[in-house]
Simulated assay, not measured.
Amino acid sequence: MSGFWSGLTGKLAERWLTLLVLPGAFYLAAATTAHTLGWGHALDLHRLTTVVTTRTKNPTATTTGGQIVLLAATLAGAAAAGLAAQALTSVVERLALAGDWQTWPRPLRTIAEQRTNRRRQAWTTAHTSYHQLLAAAEARVVADDAQHPPTEAELTVVRDERYAAYRKWFRIGPEKPDRPTWSGDRLHAVTVRLDRDLHLHLPIVWPYLWTVLPEPTRNDLTTARTTLTKATTLTAWALLYLPLTLWWWPALPLSAAIALTGWRRTRTTTDTYAQLLEATTRLHLTTLAAQLGIPHTGAPTPALGDTLTHHLHTQPPAPSPH
């Protein structure tokens, strides 16, 4: 038992150090630099070194008690900054995934609705253009093939045009947009595809499916979801660095670089998590059916999706006769 508690304590300390203290300490260093140098001496390293050296030679800071207090204050400040970033992460993730944007207060809901409509119109245009190009390319190949076989160069041009149109379409969203952000639509696309292909309502089935998944698969899903949260945490840190711009202009490019990194990682990790979520559902749906005693052989079918959704859906109570 003592080994279990020591291992648990070690893991908690490691997570506390990695998630809170280290990023928070870097933030405190940036804040101290901003307060020390200001706009007028933003890149004056000599001035920064001189001020820091002078402060460390202060008699209070050279005593053992003073150093202990300074270390404790630094750790507390770093942890506080880390906790602020963690709290802000939930807000950033809610904005990035936008699953409940229709319940947001105005004017956020109005902005989200306008952005969703713009994305939907752009997606419809790109989707139509892709299929028109695909049909025209196929017709041209068939017409050329009736007279003479198309050359490899001609086929390459057709493929390149089609691939360029597909990339333009997918950059907007894999399915018709329903949310104001790409990451939100990427996750929503999983539900849309499963409903279209298998008649499966994922929010109803997923809690039951999770319980029958093998441990390695659940670990992979948990890791992917944690990685997505860490990506949005970067954006949260960028928002915390932004106010430092009032005292120190280099905080602006620093905040922008962190925000750009967080944005790119959020898109990448969301795509990875969505792919894993959809693949897991398709691969283990028959396992859930077997656990529930629903007879089925072969790959999942729309009939199985209908059956599972209806079987697991909680029916509302019947109206009172009075």
Score class of each variant (00 low, 15 high):
44 D>A: 08
296 H>F: 04
191 T>K: 11
121 Q>S: 13
271 D>S: 13
314 T>E: 07
65 G>T: 03
143 A>N: 05
112 A>I: 04
269 T>A: 15
234 L>Y: 06
237 W>F: 14
213 L>K: 03
91 V>T: 01
197 D>T: 15
143 A>S: 10
145 D>K: 00
306 D>H: 14
167 R>F: 01
128 T>D: 12
155 L>A: 04
124 T>F: 13
124 T>A: 15
85 A>P: 00
284 H>R: 04
253 P>K: 13
291 Q>T: 14
306 D>Q: 15
287 T>K: 05
41 H>M: 01
113 E>L: 03
230 K>I: 05
76 A>Y: 02
220 D>C: 04
171 R>Q: 03
219 N>G: 10
180 P>K: 13
218 R>Q: 13
26 F>D: 14
132 Q>N: 02
223 T>M: 04
11 K>Q: 03
120 R>F: 10
23 P>K: 00
63 T>H: 05
193 R>A: 13
312 L>F: 01
4 F>Q: 03
154 E>R: 11
147 Q>T: 09
268 T>M: 01
122 A>N: 11
268 T>L: 01
244 L>A: 08
44 D>R: 10
100 D>C: 00
45 L>P: 06
217 T>F: 13
197 D>V: 11
141 V>L: 15
175 E>C: 06
157 V>H: 09
314 T>L: 14
184 G>D: 04
127 H>G: 03
11 K>H: 06
